[in-house]
Amino acid sequence: MAQSLDHAQWSDAELLLAVVVGDDAAFTAFYRRYLAVVTAFLLRETGDREATADLCAEVFAAVMLAAARYRDIGPAGPWVLGIARNKLRASRRRGRIEERARRRLGFEPLTLGDADLDEVEALARHGGGDLVGLVEELPVNERDAVRARVLGERSYAQLAIDLRCSEMVARKRVSRGLARIRARLEGR
């Protein structure tokens, strides 16, 4: 379908803006772009396939609610993973999977089958492999910055100290690294 092909070419910022105006095809494109990465991150953190699937739904519901607040500072990877991290923390704090965003949207609960749990693993393999492999291929400066920021959850201030550079330079390295990763992912 021509429309979805077009959306696949859009930047994250363009997709998220279109999500704000109710463009479901843009949401779909964004979801497909980040589903594997989010799944990989959540499965790595929880080690639980059911919890991962449940949290994935919450994360993408939150993405929709927060789309209007997204600032175009490069690829949305860190932003999405930031949402995933917050949802994970909130879930751990409360001892149950967070579902506030889904409630706000009026989301109908979904059922999980065994095949779905296998799909969680498959997605995570794809996302994790993609992400980790591509991070390793980055130039050293960018690789260290992306590793620490995205996989290590370091703040930019912490990152600047770790990398012995200014916060601005740290941001730039993360941004460049992620842009490179996204370009490679999209080129596959």
């Binding site: 979801y31 699937a53 519901a61 929709m64 979904l110 799909e119």
Partner: peptide
């Protein structure tokens, strides 16, 4: 599948 249903419902 779960992820397809998730995509459809959220869209």
């Amino acid at each position: 599948s779960y992820f397809d249903a998730l995509e459809r419902q959220l869209a």
